[in-house]
Design a binder for these strands. Structure first.
Lengths: 167, 167
DNA sequence: TCCGATTATATGCAGATGCATGTAATCAAC
DNA sequence: GTTGATTACATGCATCTGCATATAATCGGA
């Protein structure tokens, strides 16, 4: 699922991997992350809660709900794995459906401020409550509290400028 | 990006999280995983190696390359995050481009056996070599060897019937 | 053996997505 | 304050994707 690495470590594995072994470890790790992501996403997709908003749309609603003020499209784009035009049209749909409001930025006429409407906040919360339970269920079924905290810390290190887990 | 949980732990956090705190930890962890996934996928998408096969197509080529014999579509589907019709058509394209061969299953006329052609194996290897280096780069830049091994183990636990990391 | 249930894959169709590009506003330097 | 570069976002168009459904084969009994 990930990449092509050297078939196998040549000799006995040293305590600290070097060269090819290090590359192999890194790739195995990424593949494990991909597999976990894939498996969990399927599980979550099966929840019967995505009628008002698709998972991607929910992602945007959630991101907006976590932000203090209104956000610009480009800011949202940093948090959502979608092309700029893709996000633009996704937001269009959310605006059409009355879940998001778009108002002009007084300071910059190119940009527009996006924020949740009451309905949007409502949908986000309704989905979030149920989805949050599923997430917790899946994660705590598989990992202990210590492991969860470890994973949170490790995953955080994979993203740039991370505020970091309190841990 | 993930879900809605209780605003904050009410009292002092106990050594082992319970109830709401546990749910909160699980959700924070999942969000960290999503963020890491999102960030790294973007980084990898920017590599200039996806002209012969898209990332999803590569995923299929890679999966096929890791399997001993030919695979059926439904088997591939277990490893690829894509609907069955979506995968069916993706494979169509790969067959049309001569990267994958589809031959009838003698034992089951409903199924068909999928395997890499020489060209397909070639493309997979060429992409995999470069991509594997990028993956290794990104992962080892962010994590130590110990951390990589830990993450591999933790991520493996999030998928079912995992062979498990040798640890 | 025949029939309903299940499994494996394909297809029609509507909608979503990405790439290339367009439009408009801001910025930077002269 | 003009001009070229950059930034923010939108749109045309081809392609990809998912949902519902179709088709075909296999399986499990009666």
């Amino acid at each position: 699922m990930t990449a092509e690495t050297t078939p196998a470590p040549t000799g006995a594995a040293p305590t600290a991997p070097v060269g090819a072994a290090r590359t192999r470890l890194a790739n195995e790790t990424w593949e494990a992350v991909l597999t976990a992501y894939s498996h969990l996403m399927r599980e979550f997709a099966e929840e019967d809660i995505w009628s008002d908003a698709s998972m991607r749309e929910y992602d945007v609603l959630y991101t907006l709900s976590k932000c203090d003020g209104p956000q610009r499209l480009s800011e949202l784009g940093r948090h959502v794995l979608l092309s700029q035009p893709g996000l633009s049209r996704l937001v269009d749909r959310l605006v059409d459906r009355g879940l998001v409001s778009r108002c002009a930025d007084p300071a910059d006429a190119r940009a527009s401020h996006l924020s949740l409407t009451a309905a949007g906040r409502d949908v986000q919360r309704r989905i979030g409550r149920v989805h949050g339970r599923s997430v917790a269920q899946a994660m705590t079924d598989a990992l202990t509290d210590d492991e969860l905290a470890q994973l949170r810390t490790l995953a955080s290190k994979l993203s740039p400028v991370t505020p970091g887990a309190p841990s």
